[in-house]
Design a binder for these strands. Structure first.
Length: 287
DNA sequence: ATTATATCCTGATCGC
DNA sequence: TGCGATCAGGATATAA
C-alpha cells in the first residue's frame, strides 16, 4: 500500500531512467483509465520525475501547444510503475493497465486491484487543494498546531486526511502515533504544544527513515525495479498485534478506526497526556 | 460545517 | 480439495 515513502522510492528510481526521454505512445488497457487524455503529453520530453503527496508526477516539456504537461499517477493499493528498457521483458503482464512507450523503453503501469489512477494535467487545469507536504520546510510544529486546532476527530483518522497532511496512510499513521507516544484515539485538537512538537518530530523521523529503507512492503508493494521495500521489519507496531512493544515489551494491541486496523502500545501511548489528573484526590489525600 | 460510513476492486487467507 | 466468506485499504461520494 504505497504511502509517501514508497512513492518517493519509486519516483527516485524512475527519475534517472526517464529524464530526457520523449513520450511516443500511450496505451490505456483498463477502461477505468479511459478518461485520461494523453494527447497533450505525446511528443513531450520528461523534464522531472517527482513525488507529490502519494502520487508520482512526470513533468513533460515541449509537448504540442502546452509548455508544460504533467502525468499524475496514483498507485493506490496495488499499483506499480515498472521501467523496461528496450529488450527487457517482464513476467507479469496479467494486470497490465497502461503502457507508456518512450524512446528507448517503456513504463508499465501494473495494478491488480485497479484502484490506481492516471491523469494528464495541463497547466490550465485547476487541481484540488492538497494538504501540507510533511517533509517540506513548511511542516513545523506551529503549522501543524494550526491544522490540528479545533478538530474533534481522533488523531489516527486525522493523520490519514490528505487535505491536512499529504502522504500518510494506514501503516505510517500508526507508526507515527507510536513514535510520538500519542494514543490514536486522542482528539486531534486536544494536543498540547509539547505533544504537537512530538508529533511533528515523529512525522519527519518515521518518514525519512522509511524512505532510507526503500519503503514498506506489506502485501505487494514493489519499487520501479520490482524490488520489495525493506522497512517492514522495522515497523514498531503495525501488524504486530500481541507482540512485545519494542520500547517496553507490553503487547501491542489492535483495534479498528474507520474500518481500518490501528495498532498501538497501550503503555507507551496513554489515552491521557502525562500529568493529567485522572481522579479527584479525596479529602483525605489533600493534606 | 464537520465527521462517519459505504463503495470501488481483486488476491490472499481462513474456516468448514 | 473446494468453496464461500472475510480481509486488506486510498480516496471519493454520500449520509448523518
Amino acid at each position: 500500500m504505497p504511502e509517501l515513502p514508497e512513492v518517493e522510492s519509486v519516483a527516485r528510481q524512475l527519475a534517472p531512467r526517464l529524464r530526457g526521454r520523449t513520450l511516443r505512445q500511450v496505451e490505456l488497457l483498463d477502461p477505468r483509465l479511459h478518461d485520461a487524455d494523453p494527447r497533450p503529453a505525446l511528443g513531450g520530453t520528461v523534464e522531472r520525475v517527482a513525488r507529490a503527496g502519494k502520487q508520482v508526477e512526470l513533468r513533460f516539456r515541449g509537448a504540442g501547444q502546452c509548455r508544460t504537461v504533467r502525468l499524475l499517477c496514483h498507485l493506490r493499493m496495488t499499483g506499480r510503475l515498472i521501467w523496461l528498457a528496450d529488450g527487457e521483458t517482464v513476467h507479469e503482464t496479467k494486470h497490465l493497465r497502461a503502457r507508456l512507450r518512450f524512446e528507448g523503453g517503456e513504463l508499465l503501469f501494473i495494478d491488480p486491484r485497479r484502484f490506481g489512477t492516471l491523469r494528464f494535467v495541463t497547466a490550465d487545469c485547476e487541481l484540488p487543494a492538497r494538504g501540507l507536504e510533511p517533509l517540506s520546510r513548511g511542516c513545523t510544529p506551529a503549522r501543524l498546531a494550526g491544522l490540528l486546532a479545533g478538530s474533534r476527530q481522533e488523531l489516527k483518522p486525522w493523520l490519514l486526511r490528505q487535505d491536512r497532511l499529504v502522504g500518510l496512510g494506514n501503516i505510517y499513521a500508526s507508526e507515527i502515533a507510536f513514535q510520538a507516544r500519542l494514543h490514536p484515539r486522542r482528539r486531534a485538537g486536544s494536543l498540547r504544544p509539547e505533544e504537537v512538537r512530538r508529533l511533528c518530530d515523529a512525522v519527519r523521523r518515521v518518514l525519512r527513515r522509511a524512505i532510507r529503507f526503500g519503503g514498506t512492503t506489506f502485501s505487494d508493494f514493489a519499487d520501479a525495479a520490482g524490488r520489495a521495500g525493506r522497512f517492514y521489519s522495522m515497523l514498531a507496531v503495525y501488524d504486530r498485534e500481541g507482540r512485545p512493544c519494542r520500547r517496553c515489551r507490553t503487547p501491542v494491541v489492535r483495534f479498528v478506526q474507520q474500518q481500518r486496523s490501528t495498532y498501538c502500545c497501550p503503555a507507551c501511548q496513554p489515552r491521557r497526556p502525562a500529568g493529567t489528573v485522572v481522579a479527584k484526590p479525596s479529602a483525605r489525600e489533600t493534606r
